[in-house]
Design a protein around this nucleic acid. Structure first.
Lengths: 351, 351
DNA sequence: GCTTAGGATTTTATCGCGCAAGTAAAAATA
DNA sequence: TATTTTTACTTGCGCGATAAAATCCTAAGC
């Protein structure tokens, strides 16, 4: 049975075209204004669609006149592509993360994808946050935190691209972009040992941080290989203050001639404390090395010897991996490990 | 020829409930699993809806079993509330912005609203970026950049809440949250003058930055009031390097005994250069002051005397203003100006 | 010259993405 | 029976994909 043409639907939709205060302008409005069908408007906004020149001109003019902008939300419902990605980071006190976020955002933005940002106060909040991310039908998720295996399974089953940033999972291979933490530490240790340092100490991050463990054990293992045993390790939490507190403890108990810090911010805390509270000269009296390569490490007041993570390349890789898997969902998981590069400074005597 | 009605719609929708690989779970799926209607499922996820205990339990169990999460995109289409806000910031090299972003994100997150992040390479890109933000039907926009009057009109007409962060518009009152830039500079100048400084110099930000203009003219005007004329001003761009370059120029040409920097990062660049290149003691030989109160200003290596912007309060205010206007669109525009607080350090002799 | 078949192109009509609001109906309670 | 709670049905948010219809173009045929 044939439906009769729906009468005057347009009038019902928008009783007074002039009084659309606060109302959104839809493609119907533009269609009516241009005297064409709604789908014609739709095709005009889709690159590569077959539209005649006159039609496109007329529609575009009507669109401009009415201030029409396609509704990305409605569009994503039908295309099943939101052009949204979730980025989940822990905190910003570690100055490394803002740099990562900036690069990720730039990378996605260039591809017409937008970043939905989530920051965690504690890594254990991640599961609750993930649920909220997923409700927005993001095209993918970049996460700098660990996830439960069930959660990872869920992503796999739903075929939602997921890339870990500087995290990897023991049991299975998941897509991730990492910096070679242990390798970086080995570079630092080699340089310190070659320069004649004899007693070492480590300042680690929080013990639920995999990155911290990788770095600290990387350094310790290499020291063991080179014949240095019983390396004292003090635990910090990546903050400046914990760098200060940690080095005080080390100075009192161990008086090392090289302090290996699990990140730059703590290394900077160390340096300030060594100079101002213990009147030590760096690197003559003691060497300090960090990890990350944050901007302040380059400030001439510190000139920190550290391992710079190639943040730009790593971010570009993460973006690329997400987008590849968006286009072809069966792309297999891949781990990409980037070498950190030693950034010579003057906070350590190195060979 | 007329198509026959598609039969067995549910079966077409999801041929094999068990094999829904990659397919989204919808409220229909949950409804079928729980043996209820789709609207019942919908109401179970709406707080305050009238649903019997047994029904809710059954639905929730089915939801859990199938891994159902409501589709926020589809929901927002009908409710006209996306629970998304756009945050537009310029760059991250100024370490102040990550702090702002973090606080904004926390504030919105607590209210169940999510941040869509946009960063500008140049402030002039803002119009293009705004269009993309609006396509996502954001509930509001927080922007730390200037906007054209037409664009502001557009927001007003569409009744989209818009709050400027540390920007205000000359011609009309728009909703904004600001720090009292000039007032902060006056505090600094007063303290410097009282401590006996005689020759001053300013290091400004880029000349398209309203904030920089407000700060630098604020300082200069107060100096004029106190009888100090002809204050040399060197222009920087808020970066560490421009702080270094700027102070070199000042030392060669003017040799001031107090340098007033338009932000902390430049002030830090100044300090490092004065100490390392000119062997000067701070604050004995020269005083340096900044503005913002970023975390590194508190590092004991700098202990910068500066004006701390109350970032947390300002962000909370911005969040509140957006949300108020979301709930009641006719809330009038309001400008909230927060006092910066002087953060005593040891980078300047102050009274 | 005009007409028309046949194909290529453009345009229109319809449907549904997933959900929630409104309304009508049914069940439970007073 | 009258009232309240709970449930089911229908519709439409705004748009894009699809298929159907309309239009245009070309060239053969008279």
């Amino acid at each position: 049975m044939k439906q009769p043409r729906i009468p005057a639907l347009e009038l019902v939709r928008n009783p007074k075209p002039s009084a659309n205060k606060g109302r959104r302008v839809t493609s119907y409005d533009v269609a009516r204004l241009a005297g064409v069908s709604q789908s014609a408007v739709s095709r005009c906004f889709k690159p590569g669609a077959s539209v005649s020149k006159e039609m496109r001109a007329r529609v575009m003019q009507a669109a401009r006149a009415s201030g029409y902008q396609p509704n990305a939300i409605a569009r994503s419902l039908i295309t099943r592509r939101s052009h949204l990605v979730g980025v989940i980071l822990s905190d910003f006190t570690n100055l490394h993360y803002p740099e990562v976020l900036f690069e990720l955002n730039q990378g996605f933005s260039r591809r017409g994808v937008h970043v939905l940002l989530f920051t965690l106060r504690h890594e254990r909040d991640v599961d609750e946050v993930i649920e909220r991310v997923l409700q927005y039908q993001v095209d993918g998720v970049v996460v700098a935190s660990t996830l439960s295996p069930q959660r990872i399974d869920y992503f796999a089953k739903r075929q939602i691209p997921l890339v870990f940033f500087n995290r990897s999972i023991r049991d299975r291979l998941v897509s991730s972009v990492c910096c070679d933490q242990a390798g970086g530490e080995r570079l630092l240790v080699n340089a310190l040992v070659n320069a004649g340092h004899k007693s070492f100490a480590c300042l680690s991050g929080p013990d639920d941080s995999l990155v911290s463990i990788q770095r600290t054990t990387g350094a310790r293992d290499r020291l063991h290989e080179l014949g240095f045993d019983k390396i004292p390790i003090v635990q910090g939490d990546y903050t400046y203050e914990s760098g200060q507190a940690g080095v005080r403890e080390l100075i009192v108990n161990n008086r090392p001639d090289a302090v290996i810090c699990a990140n730059d911010v703590m290394a900077i805390g160390c340096m300030d404390t060594l100079r101002r509270e213990y009147n030590m000269n760096i690197p003559e009296d003691i060497s300090v090395v960090g990890f990350d390569g944050i901007a302040p490490a380059l400030w001439s007041g510190y000139s920190l010897t550290t391992i710079r993570q190639p943040v730009r390349q790593m971010s570009a890789a993460a973006v690329g991996m997400i987008m590849d898997r968006v286009d072809r969902p069966d792309t297999p998981a891949e781990m990409r490990v980037f070498a950190g590069v030693m950034q010579g400074g003057s906070s350590a005597r190195v060979a």
